[in-house]
Amino acid sequence: MVMSLEAKYEEFWRQSIKQLNDVVKATGGLPIAPPDEKGQYSLWYDVRELRLRYSISVERIKKFFEGLREGKVYATKCRRCGRYYFPPPQADCPYCKASDMDWVEISGDGELLTYTIINTKPLTYSHYPDYIVAIARMREGFNVLAWLRVDDPKKVRVGMKVRLQVVKREPEGYLTYEFVPAEQ
């Protein structure tokens, strides 16, 4: 079951604030947790909390995100040397020292090079079930990394044919891309 992001976060932060309050109360004014039976030493519970959420610049590659809305995954291709750029779909070709790029839709046909199943998840992914991260070599010759959606992870094989598609990532409901087996 996918627990909502808010609930998961709120629970995490609530726990740490509760810990802080409990300790301050219990010690008569010191946010220091006493040593515990696991050999933990006295620890100061940070009174200040830092939550970070960045604002990331996408102005020069807006076309990529417009593409997702049309169900397309775009790469860029340098008009001078023909190099593909993905990811990211670079707005600049450092080799030609030029910014003369074409936006080209990725064919979507690929062959699985390797994969893993993420069992121990980062904090901000803790609300998802275990997920498969795969890398496939696309027909154009470059690689794409994305989640691979399958019913049974045991059926995944290196070398299998996969297709890249645009999907909505739930529960956030934002557009991204993933692989599915080509035969499906």
Partner: peptide, 8 residues
């Protein structure tokens, strides 16, 4: 988008 970890 893909939540890779270092073990990953």
């Amino acid at each position: 988008n893909f939540g890779l970890t270092f073990p990953g």
